[in-house]
Design a protein around this nucleic acid. Structure first.
Lengths: 224, 224
DNA sequence: ACCTGAACACCGTTCAAGT
DNA sequence: ACCTGAACACCGTTCAAGT
């Protein structure tokens, strides 16, 4: 009887597995945001105690990295036609767009890089595109690092957007900048504050791609 | 008598001010790191209750932004001799080095930009340097944004370095990458993982500066 | 080996009540 | 207006004890 009652309340408590934990975490993320993806909340969802999760996950940072790798698997691969620069920009845009859906995640990605299968696949694709563009080999690895870091930082910047008081404060400070003490800020106030986010993002990727293609890496980097 | 006793225990409780709060916060930051700079800990240091701080500071994010602006004042100005690229790179390096002393702060800077006097001064100097380099005006504002974001992201990446398990995991994943499924990752494993941090940082700034100088912004950005 | 409850050591923020 | 104590609603992580 007790059994029947518990059957009706919950669809049979599934065994804990790392994959199940991560999948449940992604679910909470999608519905309630990263802030709610806590060990305690997750345990509650899985009908267990928070302590039990530590058998499968080292800590919160590792959990977040696992979530990110999971979501990396949802990024559409870049089109196979078109120039390498364009395809590279599209892939980076897709990566950024995914992170922008869950901005807190970008902060985690900056601090604790994922290392799962999907992340490795993303590295592979990025390196291939740079190779296709005849970017010298030494610049590809460092270039991928910069590209991903930039894309991640763009998304991370939106992590605090629930309460944009600080951006308002910056906008006010820039607008009210004294043209005598801060002539450059005053002169550029318009461009500092405006611009379609998509245009700025696109320009940023182009800046990086051009810079990577045109800037030599210092010699003797890898003494071993 | 009670008065004398309290005199001996504490050097007269100073009146609360916003500046005093921020100064005390910087002190805790320097001695114990950003994680200890909490409203409660700060209140304890100031011999009051956490609730009292909310008269002077909107929330924790704003407090962190104020701390950062304070520290921005400690960055040495760039040398007045030398090429603009070199001076620009030095200033950005100094900014990054400061953030690297308190890596958690870089994360805050990414999310909640400061808007104080020192931040405005930094913007002013960066814009001037780009102007000196004859970077077209429209690219200066967006360029400064990218440069600061990149420098901040570099520092933010080190915020989790107390427990570098995730980096170890990434290093292992890259080293063990299957050369059949991930040929590019396998081929570039060395450069993906190595390189003097200072060299990578310098190269990154050069990439950005070159890219900014050589990449046109889209037309009609600012319809108003 | 896996799972648990309870405990430890904290958080940010709000609010009624005081001065 | 400023300050406070207490409360509300949470956290991550560890650990002894169970199975």
């Amino acid at each position: 009887m007790a059994l029947e009652k518990s059957r009706r309340e919950r669809p049979a408590k599934p065994a804990l597995t790392r994959d199940g934990i991560v999948a449940t975490a992604v679910g909470i993320l999608r519905e309630e945001g990263l802030r709610k993806v806590t060990m305690r909340r997750l345990a509650q969802e899985l009908d267990t105690g928070a302590a039990s999760l530590y058998v499968y996950v080292r800590n919160t940072a590792e959990l977040h990295a696992a979530i990110l790798d999971e979501l990396l698997g949802t990024i559409a691969p870049p089109p196979s036609r078109g120039g390498w620069r364009d395809r590279l920009e599209r892939l980076l845009t897709a990566y950024t767009a995914m992170l922008l859906e869950y901005p807190g995640l970008a902060l985690s990605a900056l601090v604790a890089r994922p290392s799962g299968e999907n992340y490795l696949g993303l590295l592979e694709t990025l390196l291939s595109l740079l190779a296709e563009g005849d970017v010298p080999p030494e610049r590809r690895a460092w270039g991928v690092d910069i590209l991903l870091q930039h894309a991640t930082a763009i998304a991370a910047e939106h992590a605090g957007e629930d309460s944009p008081e600080d951006w308002d404060a910056l906008a006010r400070a820039v607008r009210d900048a004294d043209a005598t003490t801060h002539p450059q800020v005053a002169a550029h106030a318009g461009d500092l504050l405006t611009g379609q986010p998509a245009q700025r993002m696109s320009w940023g990727f182009q800046v990086l791609i051009t810079g990577i293609a045109d800037t030599a890496v210092p010699p003797g980097r890898n003494p071993a």
